[in-house]
Design a protein around this nucleic acid. Structure first.
Lengths: 139, 139
DNA sequence: GTTCTTGCAAAATATTTGCAAGACG
DNA sequence: CGTCTTGCAAATATTTTGCAAGAAC
């Protein structure tokens, strides 16, 4: 799967900004912030364009957004896009990395009578193994 | 339990802003945003004072913060303060209400080897029973 | 060529910081 | 009275909107 297929299958125009974002995210091993994505892109895009691109890609369920604390936003490819299940995310408070814990399915909690569940977000915070090591070679 | 006891037990100065916030939150049936709390307070406080008060109360584990989306922040009393367990939250996409689901304990997921978990946030999004009713008398 | 997207400017919103005045204990 | 908190101003950061120029199809 590549960015062109993704955009075509959603009837979205193939613009270099969208292609770039999707390409970066398809190969990313962790969730990335707007700035982290920008650094990995070749072209230079206005921030407004980024916001609008993310919005479009989210609305088409191509990317999903993980909000760590207020103002710490990261993106990852929607698990459905790669056949994965909804999953938990891990946030390392030391290196600010967000990892998709694809092996941890999300529990289906019992809601009060008459409530309808549409999405579930499970965010686990703590410290990753790299940062817990005696001499982490990690910023 | 009242706001004075809470502040004293944490060696925090009793200021009217802090007392007001805690009083409001102790009687709140749902998580409240900064604006919702301000509307329920008698006095008028600068926004900076609110931010600093929330920060202090969070640091002392008196309140906890629920981030729905980026830019949608709500507060609730720390469950430990009332003897409750860590729990899930429900966000209604129609009326923007955040409910503490105190009866839904948070699962303890298996993290990868070497990872340390310190906090877990489980946010369920959907529609509450009031908003799903045929003629909701709810804004 | 029509429609959608981009970039720029500007507005709107959210958050943080410095500092002097004031309140707490 | 020494320390912490407040309010104001201003800086910083984030997000949204309008609009004309440009790209996609």
């Amino acid at each position: 799967m590549n960015s062109i297929e993704v955009l075509n299958s959603h009837n979205l125009k193939r613009t270099s900004c969208r292609e770039g974002i999707i390409d970066v995210m398809l190969t990313a091993k962790e969730a990335l912030s707007e700035n982290e994505i920008r650094d990995k892109l070749l072209g230079n895009y206005d921030r407004t364009t980024f916001y609008r691109s993310f919005k479009t890609l989210e609305e088409h369920h191509i990317l999903h957004r993980i909000v760590v604390d207020n103002l710490k936003v990261k993106y990852a490819v929607n698990p459905a896009l790669t056949g994965a299940q909804a999953h938990a995310h891990f946030y390392c408070k030391e290196c600010n990395t967000v990892l998709c814990l694809t092996h941890i399915p999300i529990q289906n909690p019992l809601l009060p009578q008459g409530y309808l569940q549409t999405e579930t977000e499970l965010l686990i915070k703590g410290y990753c193994s790299r940062c817990l090591k005696p001499n982490p070679h990690h910023e």
